[in-house]
Design a protein around this nucleic acid. Sequence first.
RNA 1: GGUCCCAUCGACUAACGGUUAGGUCACCACCCUUUCAAGGUGGCAGUACGGGUUCGAAUCCCGUUGGGAUCACCA
Length: 479
Amino acid sequence: MSVRVRFAPSPTGYLHVGGLRTALYNFLFARHHGGVNVLRIEDTDQTRLVEGAAQNFIEVCRWAGIEFDESPEKGGPFGPYVQSERTEIYRGHAQKLLDSGAAYYAFDTAEELEAMRERMNKAGVAAKYDRSIMRNQFTLGEEETRKLIAEGCPKVIRLKMPLSGEIRFGDIVRGDIIVPARDVDDSVLLKSDGFPTYHLANVVDDHLMGITHVIRGEEWLPSTPKHVLLYQGFGWQPPEFAHLPLLLNPDKSKLSKRQGDVAVEDYRAKGFFNDALVNFLALLGWNPTADREIFSIDEMIAMFDLKKVNKAGAVFDVKKLEWMNATYLRSKSSDELGAILLPMLEERGITGISADYAGKVAVLLRERVTLLNEIPEFGDYMFAEPAEFDAAYRTKHRVADTSSLLSDFVLHLPQEWTLQNIRGYAHKYLEEKGLALKNIIHPLRHAITGKSVGAGLFETMELLGCEKCVQRIKAQIPD
RNA sequence: GGUCCCAUCGACUAACGGUUAGGUCACCACCCUUUCAAGGUGGCAGUACGGGUUCGAAUCCCGUUGGGAUCACCA
């Protein structure tokens, strides 16, 4: 049977980096096996909907290079792919569960449930729906139940968990998992508003959509027994499960907003490359071969193996992400960098620059920055006159004859403005004066860039052009 | 607290039951040098603990400790 997997986010806001990794693993797994990658929007909680979130997910995934074969946008043979458009399907299936005795009606109010939990907590027992004492089909009897339903009394449908025995299932990354059924709650399957909860919708959809492998975060592990029981209740074969290790804060708790950026958008906005972020995320919990760090998405597809996914959570180390981004920055072509840098420049009001020139500046300066978007500021002098001059740097290298040294220097600059000629000229000039390179290179750097740090000076001069260099040097000649 | 999951350098990880426990980030030192980087070389640093099984355990089993997740008419 061919592989079908799904990424099933809830459109309640931005896409979390952990979510992106889950989407990535699904995508890699699907592509590796020549299977199908499905996007399904789980919007059954109407109170938490965020406008545009679903579209944003698609866009962010696309930015990251993750494609879906079936989605709300593209459609597909098992649609609709938005759960709020499938409510009739869930109701019908809930009815089947009712008919077979795998689920039951309950009429408790929020207050009654709260009181129940409070009593249990006081008694020191696990807070779990006790169907023997609450208001439901069993305690009320069939007749009363029918009456309440006929009267339109608010009701939910709950899963009837066995009171004994155990529920077991296999997990590709964790092996067999066994849970005593009595410890699992009688979860609500269909809410009083007629919408299903995650448990029902997810099982019904995964089955109906032919999902073969459920690859999701570890936070779902504790509720998987419920899902397994639902498959049993429907008489369906459950899919394979693979619960992914969590992404962690430096203090090892679940990666949260409180301790740094968690939205993919944040990293995108900061200027991280899509391929670097994806590469970094992929290696958080999975490792194809320990002797390399850099992998293209195609290489990852070729090597991806769920069995090699780690069990323990992984700390999201921004420092390593930065290193990886810097590594990607150094490996990209001038054209590629120019195309990405140009809009960043325009965003900052720097216009009239060609993509070709932007790319060359990026190549010139990339070994000194981590993110491409540092370049507009770090190399401001490549796009305009230096905005300011480092006074301390000037003072440090300015001596009595610096002015004459500079004014003589511009006299016989090479006609053919190449790196080799500029460097040759400088060395010859210094040799004639009986001086060392350091006697002039700092005053020159100061005049041309205004800063004490930067790329190789002759390379900088070459790219800037003779005219601009002369002009800037002359402007700094007076003491 | 109940249930479940997890445990190799500070971080990410590698290691058919047999390795001086390897690589990467970070950190430190040195080299290179035109500032700052990058790069090169080297270094620091780990199998949580206790029992077993075995000729031999990071690896298998049990326990302890520690960490995490989850316990809604949210996903």
